[in-house]
Design a protein around this nucleic acid. Structure first.
Lengths: 339, 339
DNA sequence: CATGCGGAGTTAATCGATTAACTAAATTTA
DNA sequence: TAAATTTAGTTAATCGATTAACTCCGCATG
């Protein structure tokens, strides 16, 4: 037999008070209007009956559903982004909030529909996440719904956002090599025109310029940031007359190609060649042999920061938007040796 | 200036009808009670005003929120499971339903809380997903909420579920090798006691028995199903007097270790050694050189199957639970050559 | 002694939809 | 022509909470 879950009215009845009193007793609202023992009695009755409030009914009245929307472009699929969801999820959970997920499969026309679907469900706010660090226009469908961008910055900074500190991460990775005495540090980059490429490349150029080296000799570009591209480009770079003593790779997948190239050219990592990289992808960096030193993309931290910022926005609607750079800590492993 | 979104009452007013008529006109309910031109007029007014129904209010009345809960134990983090979420998400989206996600971080005591949090929000049903194929007890917190298990089967089959057809996938992988003329097929397994290990191992044993081979000679077990374990175990297996001409690996990470072992023993894949594996992990199988032939875990398909089954349950509450085996198709690459 | 006030509640309105029950006019049927 | 049925709506109840406005009692104060 299926018994219906108890409503607030059932609790109120059983405790011999009105629903108003029951509501105030359970929520601790209404100040001094509720006596201490009435409050205790109501609470006990609620526990006894196994009362759980109907958040839908409450949301209708209070205009707060304790749900926030997570809109991602293909986010659920990409491997690291799971951490972004988890970071957001954890911070939300701690505040008694649940995540309503929508994935747009990278189709921008779907984004508007996704946002509308969330708004129909009266979510309290929206997290807008992109698959990789980029600059976007905030979809106008957002309207006045509080929102925070994740792994993206808005062109006009009208909304709070958090992105990885790519420059800091690159400086950190290069510092690992510099500390080991490397000067001639090569860079393997990708031809894909993304924010990450731009910043990592520019930061590496600063380093090269600081040592008065020729970037042309030390830079190589693959058409795509994949293992094959890393392999082919590394073979070219390492076959040049004056090869670098260390390589900074655009990402771990390319670094995987560098390992293959080094093996083929009979260069031992890290003794003949030190390697540092970016992303710290969990299925790659620790699994390579030797373990790859890599600047970590702080997806988890970005996810929870975004939720906290959204909660702040909900608490103080007039607060100024904040653009946050999240540090990329270096995961030290065994791919760096003294020059 | 922030104008409030229009309510049904606003549409009804603007169209000069009652809210009841407006509701019926927009939803197509109420049979012939609404005239064709009234219906048109109401619809036009709704579009004009940009009316979007408040699903929360509707849900309070209809007891359908068009949301389903997705409870995972660490699911968001694990790499393949993204596909499971996406499969579920896609199927749900197509039916106008959104996914409310909760992750329990693998903590069983949290599962009850997670389910309660979802029920408070009046979700229409629950998807209960586990990180890897296993047999579980259905948490009693579920109560009478319609539920479907994902990548898990309930001990008493009281709830619908979908799991990968591990036996079929193993047979398929072995058939790849058999078709290439291999007889002496080794198996690298893991010591971890999981459902997948049991079925893959038992199915491989059937094959060995069918050819009258000695399983002891051809089987090797690593403590964990990781790259290092695969490497060490493969070195042992391939150094035996009569080494197998092909290896079936428990998973792709172990296969990655086999590749390393083969390189070290100067065996060329696939000419000296054919390799097939399981999981078809997207960051491993296609990235290895040569590409690894692997039986795919159909996470996406399981995700969407589970949603469809849940929708069926919602439509016909008295339907019998179904235990579904989802086929594991073979992803053919270049790691198999004729014996 | 009347008045004002704080304490402890209750009553009833409200959030934004859906839907059962009712109504009035037009049309068909007997 | 009167009764029955169909058409095209309207009115009001309802879902399960929250909360503004009101009541009632006892006590202190001028």
């Amino acid at each position: 037999m299926v018994t219906k879950p108890p409503r607030l009215a059932d609790v109120a009845n059983a405790a011999g008070v009105s629903t108003a009193t029951a509501s105030m007793a359970l929520n601790g609202t209404g100040g001094s209007r509720i006596g201490a023992d009435t409050r205790r009695r109501v609470r006990a009755t609620a526990t006894e009956l196994g009362y759980r409030p109907n958040t839908i009914a409450r949301g209708l009245r209070t205009r707060r559903t304790q749900m926030i929307g997570f809109v991602g472009d293909d986010v659920a699929t990409t491997p690291f982004a799971g951490q972004m969801i988890r970071g957001a999820h954890d911070a939300a959970r701690r505040a008694g909030i649940l995540l309503l997920m929508v994935d747009t499969s990278g189709d921008p026309s779907e984004t508007g529909e996704a946002i509308a679907a969330l708004q129909e469900r009266q979510i309290d706010g929206i997290l807008l996440a992109t698959m990789y660090h980029q600059v976007i226009d905030v979809p106008k469908a957002i309207g006045s719904t509080p929102a925070v961008l994740l792994d993206a910055r808005s062109a006009d900074d009208s909304v709070s956002s958090v992105v990885p500190d790519e420059r800091g991460g690159t400086l950190g990775a290069l510092a690992e090599l510099a500390a080991a005495g490397h000067r001639r540090i090569g860079h393997l980059t990708t031809a894909e025109d993304v924010e990450a490429r731009r910043i990592r490349l520019a930061t590496w150029r600063e380093h090269v310029a600081a040592y008065g080296l020729d970037p042309g000799e030390l830079l190589a570009e693959a058409p795509q940031a994949k293992t094959r591209g890393g392999y082919e480009t590394a073979v070219r770079l390492l076959s040049r007359p004056e090869r670098p003593s260390a390589i900074f790779c655009f990402n771990d997948r390319m670094a995987m190609g560098v390992y293959r190239a080094a093996a083929e050219l009979e260069l031992s990592i890290p003794d003949d060649l030190s390697v540092v990289s970016y992303d710290n992808q969990e299925l790659i960096a620790p699994e390579l042999d030797p373990g790859l030193t890599s600047a970590a993309l702080p997806h988890f931290e970005m996810g929870s920061w975004a939720v906290k910022e959204l909660l702040r926005k909900l608490a103080e609607p007039d607060a100024e938007p904040v653009q946050h750079l999240m540090p990329c800590p270096i995961a030290r492993r065994d791919s760096v040796a003294p020059a």
